[in-house]
């Protein structure tokens, strides 16, 4: 029946709400990490640009923020890997309109997003490693 089919769909969509959230996490961590690095550097360089100790503190702090961000993304990546459940059935394609496919698709997508976010965070942080002054 059309009516019950519709209800069913609404119900499974509600169940997927969590993994819909999951898909946004890695990218959001990357974005927040970028903002923190950018703003902290801009403010410290504008106010205390010549102060070597302040810049060292800034670099150490951003190093810490970076480790936290990478750990967060790795965790999200791990959760999505489990949800994708690749080792179990080797599914690459999830194009059927059924619960399992939706579930694994969301896992698969957020796993790939975690990879790109992980790399993004590393590239954003590399200048902190190399540049020792605000020049």
């Amino acid at each position: 029946m059309a009516g019950t089919g519709k209800n069913e769909e609404t119900k499974t969509l509600a169940e997927e709400a969590d993994s819909l959230w999951l898909i946004t996490f890695a990218g959001s961590i990357w974005a927040v990490h970028f903002l923190v690095c950018y703003c902290a550097t801009a403010v410290i360089c504008a106010k205390l640009g010549g102060d070597a100790a302040a810049i060292l503190m800034l670099r150490l702090a951003l190093g810490g923020v970076t480790l936290v961000a990478l750990a967060g993304i790795a965790f999200v990546g791990w959760r999505s890997w489990l949800q994708w459940d690749f080792l179990d059935d080797g599914d690459y394609v999830h194009n059927l309109a059924r619960k399992e496919d939706r579930h694994e698709f969301l896992g698969h997508a957020s796993f790939l997003l975690s990879i790109i976010s992980f790399i993004g965070v590393i590239y954003v942080s590399l200048p902190v490693l190399f540049l020792e002054t605000c020049q």
Partner: peptide
């Protein structure tokens, strides 16, 4: 590409302090 671009980015960043 990850290793290649990381290498190039690190190389480019490493020359910046001397330029300044």
């Amino acid at each position: 590409p990850f290793f290649l671009l990381s290498g190039l980015l690190a190389y480019a960043l490493s020359i910046m302090p001397d330029q300044r």
